[in-house]
Design a protein around this nucleic acid. Structure first.
Length: 462
DNA sequence: ATGTAC
């Protein structure tokens, strides 16, 4: 792939009309990360993203980019809200996979002796693993209410406080969701999965703030060194997966009808003024709300567990972000305000001052950042979402053979429990890039700034 | 990510 260096942290794939690119592609990275990025097909996938009709300015990649389905994970594609398209593959299977951070009133020294009981109680309270059910069963109209109400639906039924909603991206409810657009099959898959963690990179972690980079911002977010936090990483489970599957098929069939050519069927899309696009967006928003409700329930049960194990201290929501979503937003492009549909697939919204939550791996760190004006100029108000893998799941399992990852984590001060036989091996720290490196790049490039670093002490996985 | 093959 032909790459030009634009600045120390920005690289360009020039527009190539021969391969159908309508705009160039831009990659935020340093040389070392770029070497890792070039090992998979993510840059070809990014160039494919630049062919989407109505794409504005450039197809963008964050430094944690890696190969995905259609568009790479870590990709940001903005299309014109009137003349552009929506592409389910540019959002991902796990619609509104995202992260919520809770701040506790406890210090590491308060929690230290209680980490094992805390992790055991969290593991008992939160259903984990692929296919996990047993949160709450939602029938007919009640499931529809959750799909259209998101976190607000959960709060109205007593799972959390109204004040939580002020601390969630989009207040935990995307308008324009329509439960009728979600297929019966997707509903069936979701009916018993609200209030479950799932598997893969999803986790619930007890952490300690081990470094603060920006005192003023940390204080504003309610974070200080030594404080215990809880991070919840999960999404829309089988329901969102089925919504993506359904609409990949539908948009795939519609390509010919609308005269759209994409270089990869996995980038199937539909014009924003088409019935297919309207229906997908209504279903995507419903799946996103399901994920917001899911994180609200897990936060509520986390509070129950902390109350039982540690006492009455209140757990406050710091923030909740979506990592896989498309949002209609207004941005300035070439000096003109334009309404765009911003697809973020493994990327975090980073509007000025907004908290950004970046999970790393379970042995090292996660980060809290703040969004910036530079992000609005450079990346449609977006930044990275995580570390990104360096090892495939199978490679990680192979590398972990004969080792006891739980013991290794314990030796590093992390109590871990997981459901799947290979869950800890697949997710072991060395299977991931160093999130600190990724965060350094977005900080130096300026699209978000470091606020605090969080070190895990307890983790539950699927 | 995912009832890891409807």
């Amino acid at each position: 792939m032909n790459l030009e260096q634009v600045s120390p942290y920005l690289w360009r794939i020039p527009r190539d009309a021969g391969r159908g690119m309508r705009v160039p592609a831009l990659v935020v990275a340093d040389r070392a990360l770029l070497d890792l990025i070039r090992r998979d097909a993510s840059l070809e996938q990014l160039a494919n993203g630049a062919t989407l009709p109505g794409i504005v300015r450039a197809a963008l990649a964050m430094p944690d980019i890696h190969q995905g389905y259609g568009l790479p994970v870590g990709g940001v594609v903005a299309t014109d809200a009137e003349h552009g398209v929506v592409s389910p593959g540019a959002i991902g299977f796990d619609i509104n996979c995202g992260v919520r951070l809770l701040a506790t009133p406890y210090q590491a020294t308060d929690v230290g002796p209680h980490v094992r009981p805390l992790v055991d109680a969290l593991y008992a309270a939160v259903p984990t693993g692929v296919g996990a059910t047993g949160g709450i069963r939602l029938e007919g109209p009640e499931l529809s209410a959750a799909l259209e109400g998101g976190a607000r639906w959960a709060v109205e039924r007593g799972w959390g406080d109204a004040a939580d909603l002020d601390r969630l991206e989009s207040s935990g409810c995307l308008p324009g969701a329509d439960a009728e657009a979600v297929s019966p099959r997707a509903r069936e898959r979701g009916a018993r999965q609200v209030g479950t963690l799932g598997s893969g990179n999803h986790f619930l972690e007890v952490q300690v703030v081990d470094e603060v980079y920006d005192e003023a911002r940390a204080r504003e977010f309610g974070l200080s060194v030594g404080q215990v936090t809880v991070m919840i990483h999960t999404g829309s489970r089988g329901l969102g997966h089925q919504v993506c599957t359904d609409f990949l098929a539908l948009t795939g069939q519609a390509l010919k009808r609308y005269g759209i050519h994409v270089p990869d069927r996995q980038l199937a899309c539909a014009p924003l003024d088409s019935p297919e696009a309207r229906r997908y967006l209504a279903a995507m928003r419903a799946a996103a709300n399901f994920a917001f409700a899911n994180r609200q329930l897990l936060a509520h049960w986390t509070r129950d567990v902390f109350r039982r194990v540690l006492g009455d201290g209140a757990l406050r929501v710091v923030w909740d972000v979506a990592h896989n979503i498309a949002k209609e937003e207004e941005h300035e492009v070439d000096g003109r305000r334009r309404r765009l549909l911003v697809h973020r697939k493994g990327a975090t919204r980073a509007f000025p001052g907004q908290p950004v939550l970046v999970p790393g791996d379970m042995g090292r760190y996660s980060f809290v950042l703040a969004g910036t004006e530079a992000a609005l100029r450079e990346t449609f108000g977006s930044t990275c979402h995580g570390a990104g893998r360096v090892m495939s799941r199978t490679a990680a399992v192979k590398a972990a053979r004969g080792r006891r990852i739980a013991d290794e984590l314990a030796a590093g001060g992390v109590v871990a429990r997981a459901t799947g036989r290979d869950a800890l091996a697949e997710e072991m720290p060395e299977a991931y890039k160093d999130v600190q490196h990724v965060v350094d790049v977005v900080h130096r490039f300026g699209i978000s700034t470091r606020v605090a670093r969080l070190r895990p002490i307890g983790v539950i996985k699927g």
